[in-house]
Simulated assay, not measured.
Amino acid sequence: MSQNTQIILRERPGIQGTVNPSLESGTFALQKSPIPTEKDVPDGSVLIKVRYVSIDPAMRGWLNDTRSYLPPAKIGDVFRCAALGEIVHSKSPSFTVGDPIAASTGWQQYAILPAKLVEAAPAKKGAELIDYLGVFGSSGLTAYFGLFEVAKAKQGDVVVVTGAAGSVGSIVVQLAKIKGCTVIATAGSDDKVKWLKEELGADDAFSYRSPTFFQDLRNCIVRKHKFAHCVFDNVGGAQLDLLLGCLRKHARIALCGAISDYNGVTNGLKNYLALIGQSATIQGFIVFDYADKYDAARTDFAKWLGEGKLKRNFYTREGLENAPQALIDLFSGVNKGKMVVKVA
């Protein structure tokens, strides 16, 4: 009988620990189960063949047994993830066989889900199915609402984007330019800096691996651009602490992530008093808070894709068994744009 390959959580690495990608002895384990058939699908549910799974920084937080916006991943369960696929069997009037969909299937080749937890992924002009893990998915929606609803970026603003070469940051850079903002970006290599400036339109960009990174970034924001109106932060740590001293009056910081702190001890912010002095705000947010506005954002994205104003880049690993290593690669910064694993 054909087998359904699944990757389950074997053990937690601990808040300060790193993920071990070995499927024999590491954080995750490989298991096989029979591929579900039509008779296994309950009424109101669908069977999905998974094509792509998403690799996201938030996954590191799900490994910890701590309170967050989603419950921790459970030991022994298929590891949670966003995914794209197609309907193989349907016992719901909402879907027919062959429909492209987006859902949280977990790291597996086949998944049965209630139809109410599955989203149609219809074709859009200038887009592909994989874009539902990019601009039409959580990455694009996080960028959109973080920049426009939380940071409240407007034409003429100076916007700083940290982790700007990642799946969210690369979209933020482009949205800010579409809005008519000046964009200063940070990334993890000279190659990414070049990509951000030459391909995505950032006005200035800096690699945090440069020995003069903090001095160069501060000089650019403070001296060249006379401080920042908005910060879209994906990195946290020392970068965020520096930026607290580079704010204009009434500046807005959208706190999206803190990838620099996910595998270590958070030392805290030293320059937080700048928020008082500049009457500035710092706000964390979760994209699910804006679920009732997703359609409006996707309409804008479809328009900008059709007009050629948005570029997207996917870093793709082949094979579901490589998903744990892809998570490691994400934190080492090998990707430009969205990290995905092609399942089949």
Rank of each mutant, 00 (worst) to 15 (best):
Q6I: 06
I7E: 05
G17C: 08
V19H: 02
N20D: 15
P21S: 11
P21Y: 04
L23A: 07
E24I: 14
V41T: 00
V41C: 01
P42S: 10
S45C: 15
S45M: 10
S45I: 09
M59T: 01
G61P: 03
W62N: 06
S68A: 15
P72M: 12
F79G: 04
P93D: 15
F95S: 06
G98E: 11
D99N: 15
A102M: 13
A103I: 01
A103F: 00
S104L: 13
T105C: 14
G106C: 08
Q108L: 10
Q108F: 08
Y110Q: 06
A111P: 03
I112D: 03
A115C: 09
L117P: 08
A120M: 13
A121S: 10
K124A: 13
K125D: 14
G134L: 04
S139L: 10
S139Y: 11
L141P: 01
L141C: 04
A164W: 03
G166P: 07
K177D: 05
G180H: 03
V183Y: 00
V183A: 00
T186W: 04
K192F: 06
K194L: 11
E199S: 14
A202G: 00
F206L: 02
T212H: 12
D216L: 07
I221K: 02
K224R: 14
F227T: 11
C230M: 10
V235Q: 05
L243C: 06
H250V: 08
R252A: 10
C256W: 02
I259W: 03
I259H: 01
N263M: 13
N267D: 14
L269H: 07
L273H: 12
L273M: 13
L273V: 13
L273P: 01
G284P: 03
G284V: 10
G284E: 06
V287D: 05
R298I: 11
T299W: 08
L310D: 01
L310T: 03
Y315L: 10
R317M: 12
G319Q: 09
N322M: 14
P324V: 12
A326E: 02
L330Q: 07
S332K: 15
G337K: 02
G337D: 06
V343E: 02
